[in-house]
Write a protein that binds this DNA or RNA. Sequence first.
DNA 1: GATGAATGAGGTTTCATTCAT
DNA 2: GATGAATGAAACCTCATTCAT
Lengths: 206, 206, 206, 206
Amino acid sequence: MTDETVSTWPPRRARTKGDKRYALIYETAARLFHEKGYEATTLDDLASEVGLRKGSLYHYIDSKEDLLFRIVDHTHRFFLEVVAQVVDAARSPLDEIFAIAAAHSRFAVENFYITSAFYSDRAALSADRRRAISRTRDAYEAKVRDLIREGQGRGEIADDLDPTLAARGLLGMLNSIQQRHRLSKEMTPDAVAEEYSRLCVRALRP
Amino acid sequence: MTDETVSTWPPRRARTKGDKRYALIYETAARLFHEKGYEATTLDDLASEVGLRKGSLYHYIDSKEDLLFRIVDHTHRFFLEVVAQVVDAARSPLDEIFAIAAAHSRFAVENFYITSAFYSDRAALSADRRRAISRTRDAYEAKVRDLIREGQGRGEIADDLDPTLAARGLLGMLNSIQQRHRLSKEMTPDAVAEEYSRLCVRALRP
Amino acid sequence: MTDETVSTWPPRRARTKGDKRYALIYETAARLFHEKGYEATTLDDLASEVGLRKGSLYHYIDSKEDLLFRIVDHTHRFFLEVVAQVVDAARSPLDEIFAIAAAHSRFAVENFYITSAFYSDRAALSADRRRAISRTRDAYEAKVRDLIREGQGRGEIADDLDPTLAARGLLGMLNSIQQRHRLSKEMTPDAVAEEYSRLCVRALRP
Amino acid sequence: MTDETVSTWPPRRARTKGDKRYALIYETAARLFHEKGYEATTLDDLASEVGLRKGSLYHYIDSKEDLLFRIVDHTHRFFLEVVAQVVDAARSPLDEIFAIAAAHSRFAVENFYITSAFYSDRAALSADRRRAISRTRDAYEAKVRDLIREGQGRGEIADDLDPTLAARGLLGMLNSIQQRHRLSKEMTPDAVAEEYSRLCVRALRP
DNA sequence: GATGAATGAGGTTTCATTCAT
DNA sequence: GATGAATGAAACCTCATTCAT
């Protein structure tokens, strides 16, 4: 669980030639969890979509919960990376928020299946894992909140906003993307990213 | 399913007089669905929280799915009513959006359990019922989209926004409220409503 | 359970003014058992057909099984009476068989609901009661078998028939009546009785 | 449901090779349905008789009702085949009836468990399946009725019999066989078949 | 690696029966 | 006499998981 890098999807296990099927299983699982919910998705559903029998899945996964965790965890790590990258002192807080919103949106459109699981099926995770996910979410939210505060200090962001509420509002908006938008000709990642980050920064301006 | 009024919760069964247990069951169910998800909530959980045995629940519900539907349907009807009420020619489109956002937010904070089920467990509903819910959501979204277009026509709302994307963004934000906010001394319905409707209208301004 | 007379239906309990409803319950139960089977008939079904709620039935019955037993037991006693009445030394064995077959047929057409339960839902009865029913059936069969043997002795009945098999065959035929025939203008008890007793005696002739 | 042949029992599933347990399940189910009735037989009963746990049965069956249907359907198909085979222009109608009765009887004695379910637990089947079974029974009855009519035309069968009633009477007799007779040293299929077909043709003769 | 068989725990639902009102 | 509420046992069925082959 510690050897995956954020930039590969699905998270790698051993480097075997079964990697292609391995990827297929994780992608299909993410889609099914998105479509039917984690609890309502059976391993039989998953197995038959990837052309295996139920029992054979256990060559690729440890458990159903572990499958969910790996998917969630991947999104998780990606968001951490995003935040890390935009911490760039050269930019203003509002610019950072714009950059975060754009990266978040783009990722959500491109990976809407896996993003979808991020906030919806936490209940199925073990208490430990759930706590881990919550910690990341809180850190993410805290980062945005701090940027808002900083922006208020600099007069870039309206004074009358409550930083906590505003941060949650913006992230709530960004986290709804994968519910409604998916890749299509009109709905390019860039178009969506542009629109949502615009909404975010305008909402904050004095 | 057609005789409930929006203003009573939980939806009343015709023949039942002031049935406290009936109300308790629906409220507890809404809370449990919120906390653990619909699939992960068992009727045993529900029964023991309301002080009954599993079998006894069936005096009050038809099925687990029906229980979910009644909860979702109630939110459903409330949102329709909200939209109906703000159709007030005297106001400008932006004012209407503000009014919708405020009413939506206030309801979400006051009824976060039942609102929570609205967008999260649709998958568990029968195809028919799911379609019914989707239709309402689409109508709601359409209303907001039209107001945005109208506001753009009047120059009240920024021209460079895509009305569809913007409408979804705002509603996505509003629908995230119950995930993060619940009633407390600092988190009054009014405070949240004020903040979120402010974010909404500011996000749209030219 | 011992105070009922064969000639009244339904079996009487206390002589109260609720007797009409009492009768209705037993008749309706017999019909439902016939239509859906004993196990598949619920007391809710029965209650709603007689215009009561489930709990109220218990003013009229002791238990569901008891209800079945009373119905079966009544048929039971009737057949015993039939056999007793035709034991008339003046007649020949074949005439007695004719008389039994005619009485049996007529009863089956007139009371097809209650007759139907006789042979079909024995499994639901307690071991004791099941044994009691079997004993009567065996006595009934023995009577017919003996008449066949006697008829063979007198040359009235074909020698090459096995009395046991033949008796079972005839009774099997008679017991199938209520499965296929019910009262109608063409299907009068007399017409059916005539036909079936004719088949019985002809089947036996040398 | 369409690939089974009449000559194999239990109905084979396409992919299964010589599966002894599969056969055992169907045979045991037929016996239990015969002994206790369909509704009163639980899958726990069945599972423990075949040495499995309840859940494991579902590798072999789709549902309890499906299990019943397959058993009933098999008898069903057998009777159709019997009727088809005796359609032999060379024989007289009475000979055909004799042949049908003999084949029916022999099958009933040899397969009394599965035959037993044929006419007793129809109520448990879905409306569609029940209708299918009734259609076959009616066709079977119609065949016998027509043979009786034809025989009357030729003077082989008594004129005063009603073909419908007589056909039902004979089939009622044949369908009672498995209630009372099962394989034993004295009760060979041939002895029973001989006796019952004799009763049938004698009952009809002028 | 793949599978069919088996499991066992647990889920929703039904229903005969009891009882206070 | 009638009922609504409650019960608890048991029913059918599902499914994640294990394992021998």
